[in-house]
Design a protein around this nucleic acid. Structure first.
Length: 444
RNA sequence: CGGGGCUUGGCGCAGUCUGGUAGCGCACCUGGUUUGGGACCAGGGGGUCGCAGGUUCGAAUCCUGCAGCCCCGACCA
């Protein structure tokens, strides 16, 4: 949806707030996307919320395509459930515990395995209802010892978590593969280069655990991988085929984060010319954990042989709010944010250099209405501000395209179009600019 | 939780050492001049100096306690 800046709420800052150290945090504050409420807890202002929702929409679309079904579980959960899995005591101080008026123990969910397992066991009896994958996008809370890096390491965070249910490990492996593919597609659509790296599988063992790390110069973790991992094509959303070759194309190569990096193996498996060391941010994690929750919590289904067996489960997380910061870490320059098309809060920033000038206003209105009718979201800076302030502000908030109309151009019926990513500017007629902006989005 | 730093108007800061009743830049309001890369002039509003005690004739400043926030570490989507 398009907006006039004079009607919008976009409190931008000219100076860097002292509390923000890393670039994404600084830019999110300066661009009026978030405001901190307490350590690691943020309010989302309109611009930030738009990005959060764009990311959520992509995540949902790709989850749905992969056959996952959306639900919504509460933020507060009864402690009882966590006692069943044994995690109420194990989780430690990271879990925020709450007592209600009846003295019942509650907790603000740091994750939802227990809850989803309960929902499943209460409602599914037969293997015939499998496989199933349920997900939701919900706020979580983990009382981190030290929240930092703005929304990338907040205590409260928005996360998509999916849970798969299968009759056996072989079937669970397929569920895993679908999510693997969905993740590759999801991050690609956000304009990110994501690397699936082998991760710790914990007590279950096996090869079914991967973290997805997006590349960003300022990322907190280091990644070591074979260069060819970076050049794999993004798979089609065809989930009816055997996905093993698709997955193998990625997993055949060495790719690990600093946590599990082994220099010797790296050198042995990757030729020197193909060794890549980069920095990145973990934005997703998928893993198979078998009967870890289903067995103690008695989530059983009757198999074809008439016997009850615990379901095999996997869980698949994406840090939605973390991605907002992560994307900015990956996509910015000295002037501000450079949004990838897929997650940009608006597609076009329209700058009226002289509000009140009849010809300028008229041309801006035509552009605003035309672009909006063509399905683009336009943020129209119709404020009575100086040109420089408008340019700087527009660069800061990083919309992919800028359309600039001044009295000079208006007289000639011309619009200046600027590509935020490349800085390239061209002057076009109204019609041409409408056409240019309404077609192919920028591919960075 | 260990170590370090910080807290003064919406934001960024000075003033604290050497107590004397709060200042600068930006932002905001009014008027004027400006107007294609964060303008200029004039006037104006806004702060119980994080909180609570204490010392003192007098505390932003000294003392004690507490809280919040930031950074490094262990921990983590």
């Amino acid at each position: 949806m398009s907006m006039r800046l004079s009607d919008y709420f976009l409190p931008t800052l000219k100076e860097n707030p002292a509390e923000a150290q890393i670039v994404s945090h600084r830019l999110m504050l300066r661009a009026g996307m978030v405001r901190q409420s307490a350590a690691g807890i943020y309010s989302w202002l309109p611009l930030g919320l738009r990005v959060l929702e764009k990311i959520g929409a992509i995540v949902r679309q790709e989850q749905n395509r992969a056959g996952a079904i959306e639900v919504l579980m509460p933020t507060l959960q009864p402690a009882e459930l966590w006692r069943e899995s044994g995690r109420y005591d194990d989780y430690g101080k990271e879990m925020l515990r709450i007592t209600d008026r009846h003295d019942r123990d509650l907790l603000y969910g740091p994750t939802n395995e227990e809850l989803i397992t309960q929902i499943f066991r209460d409602n599914v009896r037969s293997y015939k209802e499998l496989p199933r994958n349920l997900y939701h996008v919900q706020w979580k809370f983990r009382d981190e010892i030290r929240p930092r890096f703005g929304v990338m390491r907040g205590r409260e965070f928005l996360m998509k978590d999916a849970y798969s249910f299968d009759i056996d490990e072989a079937s669970a492996r397929q569920a895993y593969q679908k999510m693997f593919v969905a993740y590759l597609r999801t991050f690609k659509r956000m304009g990110l280069q994501a690397i699936p790296v082998a991760a710790d599988t914990g007590p279950i063992g096996g090869d079914l655990s991967h973290e997805f790390i997006i590349l960003a110069e300022t990322g907190e973790s280091e990644v070591f991988c074979h260069e060819d991992v970076l050049n794999q094509p993004v798979p089609e959303a065809d989930y009816s085929r055997d996905l093993t070759p698709v997955i193998d194309a990625y997993t055949q190569y060495y790719a690990r984060s600093d946590e599990f990096h082994d220099g010797a193996i790296f050198e042995e498996q990757v030729p020197e010319a193909k060794r890549v060391t980069a920095r990145g941010i973990e934005v997703g994690h998928i893993f198979y954990f078998g009967e870890k929750y289903s067995a103690p919590m008695k989530a059983l289904v009757t198999g074809p042989d008439g016997k009850d067996v615990p379901v095999h489960m996997g869980s698949y997380g994406i840090g939605v709010s973390r991605l907002v910061g992560g994307i900015i870490e990956a996509c910015h320059d000295d002037d501000g944010i450079v949004w990838p098309w897929g997650v940009a809060p608006f597609h076009v920033g329209l700058i009226n250099l002289k509000p009140g000038d009849a010809a300028t206003d008229a041309l801006c209105d035509k552009l605003y209405n035309g672009l909006s009718q063509n399905g683009l979201d336009v943020l129209y800076d119709d404020r009575d501000e100086r040109a420089g302030a408008k340019f700087s502000n527009m660069d800061l908030i990083g919309l992919p395209w800028q359309a600039v109309v001044g009295p000079r151009g208006a007289a000639a019926g011309e619009v200046e179009i600027k590509n935020r990513a490349t800085g390239e500017k061209i002057t076009l007629s109204l019609e041409d600019s409408l056409q240019k902006l309404s077609q192919a989005p920028i591919q960075k």
